[in-house]
Nucleic acid binder design. Structure first.
Lengths: 211, 211
DNA sequence: ATAGCGACAAACCGGTTGGTATGTCAATAG
DNA sequence: CTATTGACATACCAACCGGTTTGTCGCTAT
């Protein structure tokens, strides 16, 4: 009882503190990029101090890596792995995830305003830091594998042609999706995202057997 | 004659100096982003001084805007407008430009290593600065218009189906292309760019009339 | 000849930023 | 009861970086 009170009063909860830092850092990186993220901003958002931050992370870069490992990659898995595996109609499931993507996870305007957290970081940091590059490359590979397996399942069901190279198609779908988000973000236009996504869906449908 | 010697000795040539600053700033922004670009780097690359830089540009942002207006947009026009307008076979011309893109303008590794200058800036700056966003949006529109007109010409020649919406298709092609470059850049792999581009070419070919 | 001006150079400034050194305090182990 | 340790807080620093101020030099118009 004394413990509970003491903890509640002093808010001593290292795991939760670490998590708060990670979330604040994620948001700051999402909005301003890694280089644009200021540790003071993270400190202000968490209402902690620099000492607390440097107690949990040795430096800014390690914090950035942790955001990728513990925020971004799990999010990719949650948004893509979960809904697609075991979906009854893989092809339609894929299209659904793409079309519902703007409303996913973050509120509607977030994706239009700030784009894809994974791609943002990749474009900024991959030429500048090999550690970032490898982590983000892993994230892309996980993502692509999910799409590829989905396409292969659709292929087995005869929903797409047998001559389609699912590996290549999955790579292109992932790339095109990031491209669509990027264009919509620059235009700051949800309409633009839908226009772009329609093109992507059209590509996916073109993989179907000719009627 | 005295003029020529004097100019040569003192290197007094404001237009050329300005151009040197622009080119150095472009390279610095290309590699590190706008926020990551350091004016000291530009100064070092041009072997000028801060006074010289601030004589030609009022501040860092204005320099960034000038790089977009006077380097990036003209490059887009040179790489896309010129080769595509008046091409005999518009559809094949489009595919050619896409496939030869990695070798274009900058030496082969540049595009893989640092990606597309236009898209890099767009992803970094469009949520942060409206001035950048509008200029980059203009660049994208110019680019898209070129692709759209090319598709429409192909459509008139019966090379693509009449029911294809050339506006939407052009948007998607542009977006997908940026996505392909982005994925290849993160993977640091030319092979990956080709894989991705193959998907894009496949999409373009799917616009053709069914045989 | 010289006054004015454009094109730079050089030194400097002040706020920001990542990082550190030290202190505090509660919980726990011995 | 005391020593230790984990989890922070406070204060501080050195480097960096955009921007300013001041100075210099040569060209040109009068």
């Amino acid at each position: 009882m004394k413990n509970i009170e003491a903890v509640a009063r002093s808010e001593r909860n290292p795991d939760q503190t670490r998590q708060r830092i990670l979330e604040a850092a994620f948001m700051a990186m999402y909005r301003n990029g890694f280089q644009g993220m200021r540790l003071d901003e993270v400190i202000a958002a968490t209402r902690l101090t620099k000492g607390a931050l440097y107690h949990h992370f040795p430096n800014k870069r390690a914090l950035g890596y942790a955001v990728v490992d513990e925020c971004i990659i799990p999010t990719v898995e949650a948004v893509w792995l979960q809904p697609l595996k075991n979906s009854a109609d893989p092809l339609q499931g894929l299209i659904n995830v793409i079309e519902q993507m703007p409303d996913n996870e973050h509120k509607p305007p977030e994706m239009i305003r700030y784009g894809c957290p994974l791609n943002n970081l990749a474009q900024e940091m991959s030429p500048l830091d090999e550690g970032f590059r490898q982590r983000l490359d892993y994230a892309f590979r996980v993502w692509q594998d999910v799409i590829q397996e989905t396409l292969e399942r659709a292929q087995q069901k005869g929903h797409i042609r047998a001559d389609v190279n699912c590996d290549e198609a999955a790579t292109f779908i992932m790339a095109a999706l990031e491209g669509c988000i990027g264009i919509a973000k620059n235009a700051q236009s949800m309409e633009r995202l839908h226009v772009c996504n329609r093109g992507l869906v059209q590509f996916i449908l073109s993989l179907q057997p000719q009627k």
